[in-house]
Design a protein around this nucleic acid. Structure first.
Lengths: 350, 350
DNA sequence: CATATTGACTAATAATTATTAGTTACATTA
DNA sequence: TAATGTAACTAATAATTATTAGTCAATATG
């Protein structure tokens, strides 16, 4: 272990050190740490050994230097993720990764870090101990991240999922939200709509900006003038969709179609439309985003765009397999399409 | 490593063995496997070493005999789960466990096994390598399981979450579905309802049986005769809830309250009631089960029971901490209550 | 009460792994 | 072309860990 040459070797902690601190022999330490059968160790001594080993950090592998077996195909891949709970996308990405691993029989170890760097480090340490051969680093919101610096010294391939690093330091995949916004809007245009409102999410989120960008691009391409009155600020919540829709309906020339930048706001939009006595899709077309479970429970079922997290998970696995090395301008950033899921909330403008 | 005495020692694979097969020196193997800096190894040799190590299974820790460091507090806990995706409960349980670990700063490593015993074994192996100190074994559906036998020889504490083993071989937690069915029904009775219909889930699922049991208990306690006509078979889907409700509404003496054994069926029930021109809660009270996200999007918002997975996750962690040893009749089976979440779908019978 | 037996350990040593200090063959440079 | 470098290794050995064969005290046993 440790460098072969020069530099003061930080002298790794040995069983003898532990034994000294615990006040017993090196042999005893070996027994305790290996749970040896055939010898008996008193609970007290055992405790002291473990205590000592822990304080000295026996065996605590430095992150950069992987433990023995590191290079050996363990068939394990690590998946770090800031949140599992808030949205189902993280689970979708994991599922995509798992399916892609299936043939190779790999195991995916997942850890949730809450975006906390200490936790990230601990989790990666644990994963390295288990001998992961690659690491997927995912965030729940699409954005640029400053990935913990130890990732760069890791010796195993790392890919970023749903996020990307400055200077393209890692291969990354994100959804193509601009294309998604474009597709949604263009679909409405193709149905004959000209007055198309959009309800955006919290504008500091990149997904919100990009979806709006796509919306504007589609309008421009169709030669429809952009009208700021048709852009409503929401915050992803049903209530905000409800209120934004009411404001639109008060306009003298009300829109005939709504592109809601997520499904929850679309559900609020539905309610406002119903309250106003408008029928979907006969009077108004609505399109959502995210393919929330909710879509199928709305009446009529909501047409939406599905985030490609499953495909992104699969992509990440295949990318890890390639063990690409960095080009001189870093690694590529891949964008994956959000497919449109046709349901019953769209109709041709009468 | 290995037993201290007797029994033909299965002779663990050493670097020397690997070196022989790879046609190089033990030193080279050491360099390759440790990714040593300061020496150069040709890609070819490196490949041969890794290949050889893999075929010989160098370092493949047997499940029962944990690797060095095993006993050392790694601050890591393993969480095995058959499915992450199908329902959000698994994520809730993980979240509960994570929160409970928070103070101690433990890391939770999660693996999804699809219920496949080989995967379970691989995942546990990987987790053991990383030095987990405890293992939570969860299933997505509440049921008795035959947990893989290696769990019993594991040296670390194991708890079952949402499932239980024959002969109480592990400490276990499950939701108290009977109490939940009882609470739901009793709430409706307290509001004055006597004709209370219930739509059950797939009857081979234990949750369905238990919720029904609770329903019958509550009726019995209130002295209301059980009427088989008021029990409709569903299959957890909205459609089945819709159809069952229509059948109930065709009854000469239609029910005034519906206890739907999950929220999806309740949403189908809502639609059937709306189609029949009945208002919730003025004309009919409805109660669901599961606290699906969907509840908040139904109008009126659905009163339901919440599954205690979060609490079960926390319980599992605290149980692991206790390192209980088996009593002569095994470990206890803990049942946790499903709390009622009051929303707007209930009213006093007029 | 002498004699096993067992629990709890250690000294000594065997087995294994890590590291140093080369060696060899080939390529570069002066 | 001799001298120098260097990539790719290995033999030898240092360092570390695992295991055997006890020791010693505290029971239990006949």
């Amino acid at each position: 272990m440790k460098k072969t040459k020069h530099e003061k070797p930080p002298r790794r902690v040995t069983m003898t050190d532990v034994a000294r601190l615990a006040g017993c022999s090196q042999a005893t330490v070996s027994f305790v740490l290996n749970n040896a059968t055939g010898v008996t160790i008193s609970a007290e001594t055992r405790g002291k050994v473990i205590e000592a080993a822990r304080t000295l950090g026996y065996g605590a592998s430095s992150l950069i230097h992987r433990p023995v077996l590191g290079n050996l195909g363990s068939g394990t891949i690590g998946f770090l993720c800031d949140q599992l709970a808030t949205t189902p996308e993280s689970v979708n990405a994991i599922e995509g990764a798992r399916q892609a691993c299936w043939d190779e029989g790999a195991t995916i170890l997942v850890a949730q870090t809450m975006g906390n760097p200490e936790r990230e480090e601990k989790a990666v340490e644990a994963m390295l101990r288990s001998g992961i051969e690659g690491l997927i680093y995912m965030t729940i919101f699409t954005r640029q991240v400053a990935p913990p610096s130890f990732l760069e010294n890791l010796q195993i391939p790392v890919v970023l999922l749903n996020c990307y690093a400055p200077e393209s330091r890692f291969p990354s995949v994100i959804p193509d939200e601009t294309a998604g916004g474009f597709a949604a809007t263009e679909t409405l245009i193709r149905l004959g709509h000209r007055r198309i409102a959009t309800i955006v999410g919290e504008p500091f989120m990149q997904a919100a900006q990009d979806r709006l960008k796509g919306y504007r691009k589609a309008l421009a391409k169709a030669g429809i003038a952009y009208d700021a009155d048709l852009v409503g600020e929401g915050n992803w919540s049903p209530t905000s969709g409800f209120e934004a829709t009411q404001r639109f309906l008060a306009l003298k020339d009300r829109p005939t179609a709504f592109f809601c930048q997520n499904d929850k706001m679309a559900s609020g939009c539905y309610n406002a439309l119903r309250d106003a006595g408008l029928r979907i899709p006969q009077d108004v077309s609505v399109i959502g985003y995210d393919d929330d479970e909710l879509c199928r429970h709305l009446r009529p079922q909501l047409t939406t765009l599905i985030l490609p997290h499953r495909a992104m998970g699969a992509w990440a696995i295949s990318e890890l397999g390639k063990r690409r090395t960095s080009g001189k301008d870093g690694y590529p950033l891949t964008k994956m399409d959000c497919n449109l899921i046709e349901r019953d909330s769209l109709a041709v403008l009468p």
